[in-house]
């Protein structure tokens, strides 16, 4: 298994390199360092000298891939690509265009992201599984029919509607929770109620139906019939037999997301004013801050790869037939 892990991690290097190259090319094709400087320096009294100075200060005064004026190995190292993109492999994120340390920002902002994403994820998972199991339990009844119709309705509604509807009904009409905002520490709880609720409810339709389909596939298997023949109750059949056997496809979707939880949600954080990494990324895209975007894309790719490896590992835990070689 260790050999497998090492091999997977080595595969990650060219993938991350490719992601970096694409991000780098996209950004520098759309935005020259001069453009970045102008955005940062504002609209008034911007001189050519100020732009040149900004580029030097932020390290954007170097050529893209090959520095003909440097000597030896520095021809490759004294370039924008090496300085700005490859340094990410050492987890050196550098500074944002406003001079703030990106690593520090990530450390600060990951906690609000986690505060929203963790409960949304785990409560959501529990709710989705429970909904799907219930629908399977009540299969071929009017309850199931009503439940499935409800799920189809829920999944047909845009995610933004849940956000705006939640803020309107719970925040504005009923006065149960702040419409948006965030506070650190224990005071955060009242700000989390609404985004977590919206996050969970908006996912019920799709995930509930997906898990229901997985369970329905299992319910006709021979081992289920055997379990029933042993005289087990339907509840025990569902929880002790069907749930573990449906775990592999569930884990495929679930474990891969886990490491990325702290990157937060772009939509939820923006609309609810949660100062997490999701809103950090959105702000950076709007401000065309290449430093932050490149760091977040790199981190996202890295964590996705970690998630995939963890998924493979989790298979071995839930299914003894799986061996990683």
């Amino acid at each position: 298994m260790i050999a497998y892990l090492i091999r997977r991690l080595l595969y990650a290097v060219p993938i991350l390199l490719g992601v970096n190259l694409i991000t780098f090319a996209l950004f520098f094709m759309v935005n020259t360092p001069d453009d970045m400087a102008r955005i940062q320096l504002g609209a008034k009294h911007v001189t050519a000298e100020a732009i040149a100075r900004w580029k030097v200060q932020h390290g954007y005064d170097k050529p893209l891939f090959y520095n003909a004026q440097a000597e030896g190995g520095e021809r490759l190292t004294q370039t924008l690509f090496t300085q700005k993109s490859l340094s990410l492999f050492a987890l050196e994120f550098g500074q944002a265009d406003d001079g703030r340390s990106i690593a520090r920002e990530i450390q600060t902002r990951m906690w609000p992201s986690l505060a929203v994403a963790m409960p949304t994820f785990f409560i959501g998972l529990a709710v989705y599984l429970a909904t799907a199991l219930m629908l399977v339990f009540f299969r071929r009844s009017r309850l199931e029919l009503a439940g499935v119709v409800m799920l189809v309705v829920l999944m047909s509604i845009s995610g933004l509607f849940y956000v705006i509807g939640g803020q309107f009904v719970l925040g504005k009409l009923w006065h149960w929770a702040p419409i948006s905002g965030y506070a650190p520490g224990l005071e955060a709880w009242k700000f989390l109620v609404l985004p977590v609720l919206v996050g969970v409810v908006s996912g019920i339709g799709e995930s509930g139906r997906f898990y229901r389909a997985l369970f329905l596939e299992e319910i006709h298997q021979d081992y289920v019939r055997t379990a029933r023949a042993k005289g087990l109750s339907e509840a025990r059949v569902l929880f002790n037999h069907i749930l573990p056997n449906a775990a592999i496809p569930i884990l495929t979707g679930v474990v891969v997301v886990l490491p990325r939880l702290f990157l937060g949600s772009l939509v939820i954080e923006s609309f609810f004013g949660v100062p997490g990494l999701g809103s950090y990324t959105i702000d950076a895209i709007q401000a065309q801050d290449f430093g932050i975007v490149r760091a977040m894309v790199f981190l996202g790719s890295l964590l996705y790869i970690v998630g995939l490896v963890l998924t493979d590992l989790s298979y071995t835990l839930v299914d003894p037939r799986v061996r990683l070689q």
């Binding site: 705006i164 504005k172 702040p178 419409i179 923006s270 004013g273 100062p275 809103s279």
Partner: peptide
């Protein structure tokens, strides 16, 4: 001064 990116939540909180 609180961060309020969207107009509608700002307006609703003003009315509250």
């Amino acid at each position: 001064y609180s961060l309020e990116k969207e107009d509608i939540p700002y307006w609703n909180k003003f009315l509250q």
